[in-house]
């Protein structure tokens, strides 16, 4: 009786795992077969003779290449650098300066960035960027993303800065090191893992972001890969499926690689349960 129940429980477990697993795996399957199929359709077919011709076709499309290798890199890279630097400075200052209520402040800011989201703030953000003369510019996109990501970035950084022993900085100060020296030689090496995490997190967020560039950019030669992918399958008349599939895979790879890297290096931790 006990054995029967045990076997039944195991079977139930595997059936449930298979069903839930299929739900998460099957939609992704197509993305990994179609790009290698010479005549890909919207169905999942294992190509008899896998080909890289679809990728070659992508690289002959200047709009696609510019969006992926230039515009997305500039926008995600720019926002990554800005977010990481600004958040690190702020997090360090918050950890080392006496400021009443600073913990509540960061907390409320994070929540506030969930209240003023892209959706709710798209009109004022658009008008602000419009009045600054930054519509259709990389800088406008970078700044808006940085503003939105900062509260959470500061929160993540604080976890790393809070773990730093003050004693090292104190002894350096006693030894007569200047503020910049302390920062560069003592603090920076210790918070580097935190900066890496924030940088990867910011990059992946902007790399995948669609709404902000979609609203703020006009000309096709500034579009990042997210907007390019979208325009490929909505505006191009009859979409060339082979091309879009290959492009979508190329576009996904950096995010996938960074996730695997972070997972391997630091473990995919769960920073305060916040993801914007």
């Amino acid at each position: 009786m006990r054995l029967v129940r045990y076997v039944l429980a195991r079977i139930g477990f595997y059936v449930l795992v298979a069903v839930v697993g299929s739900f998460f795996a099957l939609p992704l399957l197509w993305l990994f077969t179609a790009p290698f199929h010479p005549q890909a359709t919207l169905s999942v077919q294992l190509p008899a003779q896998p080909t890289l011709a679809n990728f070659a076709a992508v690289f002959r499309n200047t709009f696609a290449v510019r969006a992926l290798l230039q515009n997305s890199v500039i926008q995600a890279g720019g926002a990554m650098v800005a977010t990481t630097l600004v958040a690190s400075l702020a997090a360090y200052a918050l950890a080392r300066v006496r400021l009443p209520g600073r913990d509540v402040l960061v907390y409320v800011l994070i929540l506030f960035s969930s209240v003023v989201t892209g959706t709710a703030a798209m009109v004022p953000i658009f008008l602000l960027i419009y009045n600054l003369g930054l519509i259709d510019s990389h800088l406008g996109v970078i700044m808006v993303f940085t503003g939105g990501l900062l509260p959470t970035a500061i929160f993540i950084m604080r976890d790393f800065v809070a773990g730093l022993p003050r004693s090292l900085e104190e002894s350096a100060m006693v030894a007569g090191a200047g503020s910049w020296q302390i920062l560069r030689q003592i603090v920076l090496p210790q918070v580097r893992p935190g900066m890496m995490v924030v940088a990867v997190w910011a990059f992946v967020n902007v790399w995948g972001g669609f709404l902000i560039p979609f609203i703020l950019l006009r000309s096709p030669d500034k579009m990042p890969a997210s907007a390019a992918t979208y325009s490929f399958y909505t505006e191009a008349g009859t979409p060339v499926i082979t091309l879009i599939a290959a492009y979508a895979l190329l576009y996904v790879i950096p995010a996938l690689a960074l996730y695997l890297f972070v997972n391997w290096r630091y473990g995919f931790k769960f920073f305060g349960g916040i993801k914007s």
């Binding site: 600004v86 702020a90 506030f112 939105g148 503020s179």
Partner: peptide, 26 residues
């Protein structure tokens, strides 16, 4: 470890971004 003035200087870029792109739109 940080003078008040330095601390403010470190915080101000973040404050500017947050005021400009979160508080002001709100």
């Amino acid at each position: 470890l940080l003078s008040g003035r330095m601390g403010l200087a470190f915080l101000s870029p973040a404050l500017i971004f947050i005021i400009l792109f979160l508080l002001f739109p709100f």
